[in-house]
């Protein structure tokens, strides 16, 4: 659906994007993750045709974006991080204004404007001037604008950042719903829990470079940590020393009844560790391989990038 190759963008001397490449499949949710200033918004602004870029190729729906911009842009909806409107308009007027630019049938659009406002829960405030809206309300109105003319690709830049916890959950549910409608979603966020919940593919960007692009399931497999958390019924005390003698165990952290076993080879450990524990003279209440959250993975990858 979207293919980006060697995209470069610099603001004067500052290189915002250092030759990034990635691909987004049709109907998937592509999670674009990075800290503030990593280049997320820059990338989205380029892909929505709002700013120019220095080098590289962009293909959307198989077509060269630069050459077919006016045509391709019709199938794109964009929710910017801090949406701006004409504050003297009300929500109805603004949506009609955008509808006129897109060229929707006006009768059809005025009907769907009401509907759109209902979907984003602004129907009651639709006749109030946008200038008096809260950030959350503006965010929802922006979503309505992005949805106009049912786009095939949606770019969502930090869609949940301005919303209250309830609104955030609603936003995530909405994104999950859109996924079922086969809409391709390009989602940038720094809230990793959100990304973990809705994304199919994760792309980590830092300082204008892409550090990794992987399916979420693959990611968990690759970045599984060689740590086993075991909990005993009673304080194991010197039982643990027996484990420490094993050559494939690197170290053990003790914390009362709970211990964390760091191993050298996770696959070998998986098959051996239960046998060894069962030899101990104590009862086990829980045992698990520690799962990396996206947050752990992100921190590891990004901190590695800093060292380089």
């Amino acid at each position: 659906m979207i293919k980006v190759a060697n995209l470069r963008k610099s603001y004067g001397r500052l290189e915002a994007l250092k030759s990034i490449s990635f691909e987004v499949e049709k109907g998937s949710v592509f999670g674009f993750i990075g800290r503030n200033g990593a280049g997320k918004t820059t990338t989205m602004n380029i892909l929505t045709g709002l700013i120019r870029f220095n080098e590289g190729k962009i293909f959307i729906k198989g077509k060269d974006f630069l050459k077919n911009k006016q045509e391709l842009i019709k199938s794109i909806g964009y929710l910017p991080e801090t949406p701006t409107f004409y504050n003297y308009m009300n929500a109805y007027e603004y949506l009609n204004f955008v509808g006129e630019i897109i060229g929707c049938d006006l009768k059809k659009s005025s009907k769907s404007v009401g509907k759109l406002l209902e979907t984003v829960k602004l129907a009651k405030q639709g006749k109030r001037r946008i200038g008096g809206y809260s950030r959350g309300m503006k965010q929802r109105l922006a979503l309505a604008v992005a949805f106009m003319n049912s786009p095939e690709i949606l770019f969502l830049d930090e869609p949940a950042s301005a919303l209250d916890p309830e609104g955030r959950v609603e936003m995530l549910e909405l994104i999950e719903g859109l996924k079922d409608d086969k809409i391709t979603i390009f989602l940038s966020t720094h809230i990793l829990n959100d990304a973990e919940r809705v994304c199919d593919k994760i792309c980590i960007i830092d300082e204008g470079k892409i550090l990794l692009t992987k399916n979420l399931s693959q990611l968990h497999e690759t970045y599984i940590q060689p740590i086993f958390d075991v909990e005993f019924e009673e304080d194991p005390k010197n039982e643990v020393d027996l484990l420490k003698k094993l050559s494939w165990i690197e170290s053990i952290k003790e914390n009362g009844r709970r211990i964390s076993i760091y191993v050298k080879d996770i696959d070998y450990a998986k098959s051996e560790i239960l046998k060894e524990i069962s030899k101990l003279n104590t009862n086990v209440t829980s045992y698990q391989i520690r799962k990396s959250t996206l947050e752990d993975i992100f921190m590891r990858i990004v901190s590695k990038n800093e060292i380089i």
Binding site: Q70, G77, Y78, P80, T84, Y86, V98, V145
Partner: peptide, 14 residues
């Protein structure tokens, strides 16, 4: 400068 054109341009304003 107030970024008022983000929406119109992103929805294909000429």
């Amino acid at each position: 400068s107030l970024k008022k054109l983000v929406f119109p341009y992103s929805r294909g304003a000429n």
